[in-house]
Amino acid sequence: MTRHDFTERDIHMALDGELPEEERAGFQSWLEGNPEMKARSLRFEADRARLRDTFAGVLHEPVPHALAGLVTGEAKTRSAAAPRWRMAAAAALLLALGAGGGYLAGVGGLGAEAQSEEELAEDAIAAHTIYAAEQRHAVEVGANDKDHLLGWLSKRLGLTLIAPDLTAEGFQLVGGRLLPAGQKTAALLLYEDAKGDRISIYVTAEGAGKAKGIYSDEAGEASAIYWLDKGWGCAVVGTLPREQLLDVGRKAYRQLLAGAGMA
């Protein structure tokens, strides 16, 4: 049974996907028989496309830090005093990172050093975003050729690089690759857990800076735990819950330093 008394109301319903399936064919032939209604339908559709196009770009704009930080707890609310729980969360984070030397990105006093740590974290997140999403070409050298991988990356970076053992944390080495980092080179080691969640360890030979912290990109998807110390720049990047990423990151960093004889 199809209805024959279609009206302009049905044009809107059809456009919005609200016309019942069994009425669509009837509606279409009604439109064909009513050029005026058909023109109107096309016009509404075109206007809607214009509307959508006009605002489509908003989805791709970087999310302002004031908004993303509000949710992650890194930015304050606009009201003068930050709620108590947020202060507590920030304090807990500082404790988790350990005392001395480091400070959180985005919290005051960002100097020239902060520039390089931000760069380190941003580069590490960018590399992770690109390569962790790759299934077949995520790494240049796989874990099955680990000695070669580490020898090669160590040589190119001018560091003694080991691949931290994160088995206890549920992560296995997938492999690694060499990346450009400004004028220098960086190494990326990619790990994966049983669920297919990936984290990456990004290492570069940095200057004399000393800093550590957590950094989230503006889209807020991946976070980096980073250290700048002893001529190393190291960032552990992933989309894991922050506590877990902190835990894995610290274990990885300790092993990296030990492996290079610096711990």
């Binding site: 605002f55 704009e61 999310v63 993303a68 949710v71």
Partner: peptide, 13 residues
């Protein structure tokens, strides 16, 4: 929080 964060672009639009 992660789920809320993911909705920000839509809310902004």
């Amino acid at each position: 929080r992660a789920a809320i964060l993911a909705e920000i672009p839509r809310l902004r639009r």
